[in-house]
Every structure is written in structure tokens, then in C-alpha cells.
Design a protein around this nucleic acid. Structure first.
Length: 402
RNA sequence: GCCGGGAUAGGCUAGCUUGGUUAGACUAGGGGACUGUGGAUCCCCUGACUCGGGUUCAAAUCUCGGUCCCGGCCCCA
């Protein structure tokens, strides 16, 4: 937990420096919230059940929908843009495997009420900063645009209700399967080639010249803003499809190859959802980090987390010093120094051993000899050096070395 | 939804093939050797066969079923 908190706070810190504010939504909601815009596969993996009031409820499988629901209910009149982030557990009834758990943690953010290239750049920049804050070395970020792909497919004659099937094949680059599928729908082979060309538009910013319409310009602007903010330019990959649900424009994802099959550590894009939950249509961009996965990736790269112990362990030399020791530890705590005291009646040797085991930085030895002059012995546990320190200057001495 | 592997003290494990001592070791934790100084050593103590049924004189061991865990596929908002 200490380790998780350590990293969690790093992410939180990044979000705060980007001007986002933290929100928390319920762990379960009306199942409908998650069903509204999802296919049969999503439904199968929903932890849904009836409560005692016969309501259909579900544990949240992700937090974008709850965040937007919260926006519609409570924040729709707040000044735009609205920048919120969240961290919490989500649940999906899937087959667990490495990097995939039925209960997992997501750290995510939504930038609501804006639809400019700056908006998308802001969100991508924050995601990149978070990956950096984690200290991850091996990863790649790719951005694409699902709007242009959706448009191209519709123009080619794929019926709206069958677009999802085609997109799924394209996402996996299963061209052998995508071609007959589209042929069945009456798409010309020239159009099919065109679609494949589009999803194969991969590379540096220069490939954006091949992107039709305004989308090329738009993504170029996004990239320019990222450059201005000093963010390493992501790969362009128009084949990034990001699931099949509510994304409408720019989409992006980050993956850590070391993780194998479940390598995606971050994903997001721009979308509109609020109109589904009774609000007006509002453009947003958001993303979520798979907290467990990125943690796993950092571990695989050999990052070690060193737990931090307490600052001081107070131990009485003899039983007649126990009340004095209690006074000293209370004083240290009052000064905000994390400290502990022997409460098991241990002899000094064992108490010192305990202090070492709990990683105390200092041992404060309370003995009658020093106490005659109102002093204690301060022992540096890592070096073994020790000296006599007046009780009143003890807090300052300990704080000095923090 | 499909497939594979597994479960023995708090942790890591031996034993299981071929049923038969008090289920062993290491580690951890508590105490002592050690009455004002830790990480060492020695001694003592604490602590376990995933659950249920079956076979058997006898089951950690064989068998059937459940649960849970790990991993692969599928899917992945």
C-alpha cells in the first residue's frame, strides 16, 4: 500500500500541476449508465446485479461515464473548461491474467467543454507527464483520429450499424477478414484500398500530409502544441481505433511492450457523452491510466521502491525511565516527527534491534545518566554515530537531517 | 466463453511418484544466553496439509466434486 500510495501521489501531483481537480464518484451506479453506449461484450463483463430495492446496479467498469454523469448532474454550470481527475477501483468480470484483474485501479482525467487542438494536446501532455513521473523507460505513445476513419467508412457505404464490426477488424489489422466483410456490404475495392491506406498511415508528423480533410491540419496543430510544451512527439497512427464506443475525434494510447498481451497502460481521446445522460452535447477529451499495469511495467523495468521508516524510536535504558521515554515520544510527536516508543518492556538490545527492523532513522536513548542534565542520546541508526543532545533541541536535531 | 498449471505455518518450501513415525528445513515472530547499545551466534517457544465426499485398518499422499489463486486464448469501455 505504501508503494501504491507513493506512485498514486505522483500521478495526483502531476494532475494538480496541470490544473485538474480531484473528484470521486460512487463505486456502483445504475447499470443503465454503463449500458447506454456499449455493445454486448461490454455487457457480458459488467458486474451487474439487483439490490434490495430491485434496482439494477453495476460496479463501475470505468470512470468516464460516472465523471460525465457527475458533470451533467452537478457541474454543468461551472466555468468551462472543466478539468477533473479521479483515482479509484473499477470492476470487470473478465478472465484474470497477468496485468488484468477483476478489480483494478484507474487514474483518469476529463477535460470537459472544449474542442480545440489545445484541448487534446493538454490531455496528451498530461498523460505523457504521468508516464514520465512513473519513471518508465520503455513505452510508446501513438495518436490517431477515429473521426476521419469513421467518416471514410461511412462514405464508402458501410452501414452505420455495422461500422463497429469493420473497425474491430481494422484495429487488429486483420485486413484479410476486413476485405470480404466490406465487400459483402457493397464497398468497392478502390474504397477498401483507400481505407486500408488510411489505417496504414503510420509514422512521424510528416505522414499527416496524407490525411484527408481538416483532420490532417487538426492533428498537425495538436502536434505543434505538444512540441511547444516540450512533449516528445508521439507516433502518428491512424489505425488506432481505441475500442468502439464513444470516441469521436482524436484518440491515443500508450503501451509498455514489456507487459506482453496486456501491454496497454493508457488510453484516451475526445468524445461526447453528456447528451446521453440528459445534458446538452458537450465536447470533452479524457484518458485513463491502468494503474496496476503501469506499476507492473515499472517493476519489470527493475524499479525498486524503498519503504520509508519512522524518524525516531525512543527506548528507555531501564524500567525507571519508561515514563520519561513516554514524555519524550509525546514531545516528538507534537513536533510532527514520526516516532515510536518501546511498549513491550524490552531490554535495550532487543529494542534497538526492533528499531532497526522498522527502519527508524534515529534511536533516542533515554537513560538516567544523561537525564540528570536533561539530555538524551541520539543515535544515527545507519551510521551508528551517537551523541548527547538536550531534550529541548531534539526535534530540531532530527528535523535537520530530513 | 475456451484451455493449462497450482494450493503444506505469516513468507519460501521438503514430503505426494510407491498411502503407514510426533508432517521436516529455512525464514519470520516471541523469549532467553546478554542488568546502558542493533544487524552475529546458540538454545527454547509459536505456527501449516484449501474445503467437502469417496476408497482404505490407515489419506498431505489415491479418487470425485467445490472454492480460490496463477497463467494463456477470446475480449478489452
Amino acid at each position: 500500500m505504501e508503494k501504491r500510495r507513493f506512485y498514486e501521489n505522483k500521478l495526483r501531483q502531476v494532475a494538480l500541476t496541470f490544473g485538474f481537480r480531484e473528484v470521486e464518484t460512487p463505486i456502483f451506479e445504475d447499470a443503465e449508465l454503463f449500458i447506454l453506449r456499449s455493445g454486448p461484450n461490454v455487457l457480458k463483463e459488467l458486474y451487474a446485479f439487483k439490490d434490495k430495492g430491485d434496482r439494477d446496479i453495476a460496479l463501475r467498469p470505468e470512470m468516464t461515464a460516472p465523471a460525465i454523469r457527475m458533470f451533467v448532474n452537478n457541474m454543468s454550470n461551472d466555468p468551462k473548461p472543466i478539468k477533473i481527475f479521479y483515482f479509484g477501483q473499477c470492476f470487470r468480470y473478465e478472465r484474470p491474467q497477468s496485468g488484468r484483474y477483476r478489480e483494478f485501479f484507474q487514474f483518469g482525467a476529463e477535460l470537459i467543454g472544449s474542442a480545440t487542438p489545445e484541448t487534446d494536446a493538454e490531455v496528451i501532455a498530461m498523460a505523457a507527464s504521468m508516464i514520465k513521473a512513473f519513471g518508465l523507460k520503455e513505452y510508446r505513445v501513438r495518436i490517431g483520429h477515429i473521426g476521419v476513419l469513421r467518416q471514410r467508412i461511412a462514405d464508402a457505404g458501410v452501414p452505420a450499424d455495422r461500422a463497429a464490426e469493420v473497425l474491430q477488424k481494422l484495429d487488429k489489422k486483420l485486413y484479410d477478414e476486413a476485405r470480404p466483410l466490406m465487400e459483402d456490404m457493397g464497398v468497392s475495392s478502390a474504397d477498401i484500398d483507400g481505407i486500408f491506406d488510411l489505417t496504414e498511415t503510420v509514422g512521424g508528423p510528416e505522414v499527416l500530409s496524407k490525411v484527408p480533410g481538416d483532420v490532417g491540419d487538426y492533428l498537425r496543430k495538436v502536434v505543434s502544441f505538444l512540441e511547444a510544451m516540450g512533449v516528445e512527439t508521439p507516433e502518428i497512427d491512424l489505425g488506432v481505433v481505441r475500442g468502439l464506443d464513444y470516441y469521436t475525434g482524436m484518440v491515443f494510447e500508450a503501451e509498455a511492450p514489456a507487459l506482453g498481451a496486456e501491454k496497454q497502460i493508457c488510453g484516451g481521446g475526445s468524445y461526447t457523452l453528456s447528451e446521453l445522460f440528459g445534458g446538452e452535447k458537450v465536447f470533452s477529451t479524457g484518458f485513463a491510466v491502468g494503474f496496476d499495469r503501469i506499476l507492473l511495467a515499472a517493476e519489470k523495468e527493475g524499479q525498486a521502491y524503498e519503504p520509508r521508516g519512522i524518524d525516531a524510536y525512543v527506548l528507555p535504558v531501564s524500567d525507571d525511565m519508561r515514563l520519561k521515554a513516554a514524555e519524550v515520544v509525546a514531545m516528538l510527536r507534537h513536533e510532527g516527527i514520526s516516532s515510536d516508543v518501546d511498549i513491550m518492556g524490552r531490554k535495550m538490545g532487543k529494542a534497538l534491534k526492533y528499531a532497526s527492523a522498522v527502519r527508524a532513522r534515529f534511536a533516542v536513548i533515554v537513560g538516567s545518566k544523561e537525564m540528570e542534565e536533561g539530555a538524551v542520546t541520539l543515535r544515527d541508526m545507519s551510521s551508528g554515530e551517537q551523541r548527547t543532545v538536550p531534550v529541548e533541541s531534539l526535534p530540531a536535531e532530527i528535523k535537520k537531517t530530513q
